[in-house]
Nucleic acid binder design. Sequence first.
DNA 1: CTCGGGATGCGT
DNA 2: CGCATCCCGAGG
Length: 189
Amino acid sequence: MRLCYTPTMRKLAREFYDRDTQVVARELLGKLLVHGDRVGRIVETEAYLGPHDLAAHSARGLTKRNAPMFGPPGFAYVYMIYGMYFCMNVVTEREGHASAVLLRALEPIGEIDGKTNGPGLLCNAMGIDRQLNGHDLLSEDFFIAEGAASGDAAYKIVKRPRIGVDYAKHWARRHLRFYIADNQFVSRR
DNA sequence: CTCGGGATGCGT
DNA sequence: CGCATCCCGAGG
């Protein structure tokens, strides 16, 4: 698989992910998700805070599916939803904290085949499936990087309730969804 | 072993 | 709003 790793693309370190999940969710905006030669700029995320967060998969304890959430930060948690899509998370905070950030939308960079304005669509377009569940995001073929050397461009971050978690009682109302304002690739606009 | 429903997306 | 389509996770 051809790699897309240039000097202007600095891979995020383990320490980036080993921080407060809401901070990671906000700071992932504008970063580049890289899988082989496919690259997309993250424009929408959601924070899932741990077992106390009733919307998180870790809310009912450790299971075979959610095991990566309980592992160390900087690994991928990929799962199938509705029998036809995959969703990708990055694990955050210390091992055992069981928190993660869901990647909800990307802005395509270069040649990407398919839509990227939703968690299932972006996994399709980036070629992300169950084989990448538990994959280290400090690896050579699948990682997240800073953008161009110019650094973060100025943009406004919008905070809203998470999508599709109405079952989570008061947790459904918390503003744990983050996206870049006015970006055309954000889902459900 | 059943069985209900889901961090979705698309068409009506 | 209905529905595709599969697997998880809870319960018997």
